[in-house]
Design a protein around this nucleic acid. Sequence first.
DNA 1: CCCGATTGCGTTTTT
DNA 2: CGCAATCGGG
Length: 787
Amino acid sequence: MSSLLANLNAEQLAAVTLPDEPALILAGAGSGKTRVLTTRIAWLIQNGRVSPAGILAVTFTNKAAKEMQTRLSSMLPINTRGMWIGTFHGLCNRMLRAHFRDAGLPQTFAILDSQDQLSAIKRLLKGLNVDDEKYPPKNLQYFINNAKEQGLRPADVEANDDFNRRFVDLYAAYDEQCQREGVVDFAELLLRCYELLRYNDAIRQHYQHRFRHVLVDEFQDTNVLQYQWLKLLAGYGSGNAAAVFAVGDDDQSIYAFRGANVGNMRDFEQEFRVRHLIKLEQNYRSHGHILDSANHLISHNARRLGKNLRTDAGHGEPVRVFQAGSDGQEASWIVEEIRDQIAQGMSRSEIAILYRSNAQSRVIEHALFSSGIPYRVYGGLRFFERAEVKHALAYLQLIENPRNDAAFGRVVNFPTRGIGAKSLEVLQDAARQYNCSLAEAVAYVPGKAGSSLGAFIRLIEQMRAETSRMTLAQTVEYVTNTSGLMTHYQTEKEGQDRIENLQELVTAAQAFVVEEGYGLEALGRMLPANRDAMPALAQGEQDQQVLDPEQLPVVMTPLVAFLTHASLEAGDNQAQAGQDAVQMMTVHAAKGLEFNVVFITGLEEGLFPHENSAMEADGLEEERRLMYVAITRARARLYLSFAQSRVLHGQMRYHVRSRFFEELPEASLKWITPQGQAYGAYGSGSGRQSSERESAWGRDWFKRAEDVPYTGVKPTGGMDTGKNYAEEKRAAATGFRVGQSVFHNKFGEGKIKALEGEGADARANIDFKRHGTKWLALSVAKLDAID
DNA sequence: CCCGATTGCGTTTTT
DNA sequence: CGCAATCGGG
């Protein structure tokens, strides 16, 4: 028992062993937050204060939830699978599946991801003949999600003018459409679950009675609805409330733009009469200069709960600051520093390059690529979001529920079956006229269109029949083949990756069955793989008396579970792990991670802090928190850089260094002057700005941009700024440069993306308009420059 | 129906 | 500038 608590510091120990009362843990960056959270759970269970079934622990990401489960099972010999540990959406989904009838949902409801939601909205607007110039689908999507995240149904939304009233009406129409099709979007999962608890006394009381301890991770990121949900679930104000253990860091709140409400921390403290507020201020990650920089910076924020990180690690190295003439120069400087680090034995994956916006990655990628340094860029499409995977999933959804019009529309003519826009229009009109789904409306479409559509319906029915006795993986494989998707991509010239992804989907289905335990054991229970074996459930014969989901029969077939998994957990960004590579990502994406060496790039007014943040209330403070998050990612070495000129949206822009430099402790900084450049005006001490003027910083920024004299090399725009020196040398030797348009006798016109090697080894990476990207040896290929 | 051309847009993102 | 979505010709 003592081993659980061993190695905890005094603050951590106090938090872990708090009595069963509401508590707020202010956990600074690198202070062992996850450790405290999981140890608390383990400690509660081990001391018999609560059974595993009496705990609910909630996070924002699947990654965090998984991490918590893994750590917990390493601390205690218990099976965490059945425990209520998950994301807000995952736990809500679980409750809604168990109580689908009370929630007013079909048993097999599908979950729309953001893309699906947007296309559902587009479809809705088209059907209602709404001018999508005046009511852009994106805006409506934002409006709907925003309302839902405030807990507002259409009837609750105040509309003070005709324009807004229209939005509210469309919101109502959208909800009706979703209900009709048996689909639920992300925000709806939460709102529907909230309403289930709110309006169903028996269910609410059941869960309130059951969960004695509710633990919340990243509490500063909760939105209004999530907090309301937590209050309801914890039985706030009932006299028998669960002990809510909220862990968060107001200084790391960086998601206001998507609804996070830091105010929830203050509200929680007051509403729950929190008597235990514990600050975890001991940092186990960063060296002194880095931590001093973080503390100093964040002290410029006005509204804080107050916290100061400390470390035993010693000062370490100073923070290195670099001023570049251009974005290209910044990139080549980064490359040089990284080369040095690698030469000194630093592992590439321990080096991270952070930036405020994704667009900044391009120049840096290019520089890394030309130098042959392996790198990995985070972000982009995830596995279950890829078009070909979504197509396959749509077929699977139609097997489960043919009324899913979104799925129907996605694949009715993919691969093409001669069902064009005209036919679909007729079908949609019929569906509207008879107030039924697209699949049901097929019966009313006459002629050739009708027979093509009929054939599609029969295809789906055939799939349903044929797969009813198959395993999940067999089903997925059968569907990718029978749908014609495989054949389609085989004939497409760039289809190889897509085929591999479809094969990967089969593998994922296989792995899912194993992981989720839908194996022989489940077959013995009630053959969930066999839908025909579940007549009682198919008729919705759920035992209303049994409230505990664990006592309910398996309500999800493996297929429904897999589809749910696909929506709720979009999968990894990229499979290309493996190689030891430099990590590149936005500051947002870096939250929660740590690296030995960190570069924070593009520290310029307008970029970081971002110019748009001046428009929003509290915008600058959020940017500062973002910078705080960025700084605290670094363990041993931190680099900060900015460029005087930068190509943005194809245009050269001139920037002044970020105000954040003025908010860092001079004693912890070491300014690096680029060779051959004076840097007087940018030295420390000049241009100090008082923080009281922050409110008008947008205008200030322009003024400063003019006021600050350039004593260094003033960028003149065009070629000679920001060139990688090595590249320049190469360009001189080969007569070619990156970005140059060239003509090849066989491949035609192309553009040079990269140059490598020298002399006889010189090669160029060329993106040909017609033939894709190729590496060509310059000594062999006959290339002509085009101007 | 497919492909090339044109147009528009550009902060951050998980579920 | 680079991309994604949409448009229009063959």
